[in-house]
Design a protein around this nucleic acid. Structure first.
Length: 258
DNA sequence: ATGGCTGAGCTACTCAGA
């Protein structure tokens, strides 16, 4: 089964690119972030025509997450954490795979910039609540798959110029420690597990020719509990959609699991 | 390079992203 995470930066502005991607990559489940639309304006029909059911937690203008799936999802949950600003940033659901009941958790972590503002405090608070609730969830289910736009650069290798980001909300040690806290609950950063020294990115800024110069960062991740590591077939960052016309600034990360 | 793009809402311009 192929599960993909992709921050699409507006599902409506990106619909053609997304449909082309699905045709080429043939995923079973898409975890989308930053859909930037309310539930009622979501392009359900476009996905239904090609065999996908949409589970949407939208928001007007900003944020918003969705899961697009060929297989039926159970126990869809939009309240994984209590968000103090009521922003739509998490949608979770269950699938069954080889007798394992897997909880998929699709997240869009707050950006947190600029630091020394309420936005940064919101990011820290959001991550704290998230980690706490992951910990609780682990008591009832050892099979967690957390994927999405974490807005965290895990290590120096994960950005083209770390110095520029060590005081940024994406690269500050305090934030990177939150990522390590999650890992320490018994999860693996699957891309890094499978690629010990490879320097690849999932995001490139729109400006200053960042894509052409490969000034990117790896901020979209798949974290799986240790219990699921044996099920992994492969993980891949698919850079093709970022090279297209009218791209999202993020590119899909693809997990194959058996 | 604290933004030189891009998108939403709206219909001139601000807010947000990372």
């Amino acid at each position: 089964m192929k599960i993909v995470s992709w921050n699409v930066n507006s599902v409506r502005a990106r619909i053609d690119n997304i449909l082309i991607y699905i045709k080429q990559a043939n995923p079973d489940i898409l975890l989308l972030q930053e859909i930037k639309t309310q539930d009622e304006s979501f392009p359900y029909d476009e996905f239904e025509k090609i065999g996908f059911k949409s589970y949407v937690y939208g928001q007007k203008s900003y944020n918003g997450v969705a899961i697009i799936s060929k297989i039926e999802l159970k126990n869809v949950n939009k309240d994984f954490i209590k968000d103090k600003f009521n922003q739509s940033r998490i949608i979770a659901a269950e699938i069954e795979l080889r007798k394992k009941r897997i909880e998929l958790i699709n997240i869009y972590v707050p950006n947190g910039n600029p630091i020394n503002t309420e936005k940064y405090e919101y990011k820290k608070d959001w991550l704290k609540k998230f980690i706490s609730n992951v910990k609780k969830k682990l008591l009832s289910n050892p099979n967690l798959l957390i994927a999405g736009d974490f807005n965290i650069i895990p290590e120096e290798i994960d950005v083209y110029d770390f110095k520029r980001y060590e005081s940024d909300a994406l690269g500050k040690l305090e934030i990177r420690k939150k990522f390590r806290e999650l890992i320490n609950l018994g999860l693996k950063d699957i891309y890094r597990l499978k690629n010990k020294t490879k320097q690849e990115y999932t995001f490139w800024d729109y400006f200053a020719g960042s894509w052409q110069k490969n000034y990117g960062m790896r901020i979209d991740h798949f974290l799986l509990t240790n219990n699921l590591v044996e099920n992994i077939v492969s993980i891949n960052i698919n850079k093709n959609p970022r090279s297209k016309k009218k791209p999202s600034d993020h590119t899909p990360i693809e997990l194959e699991i058996n």
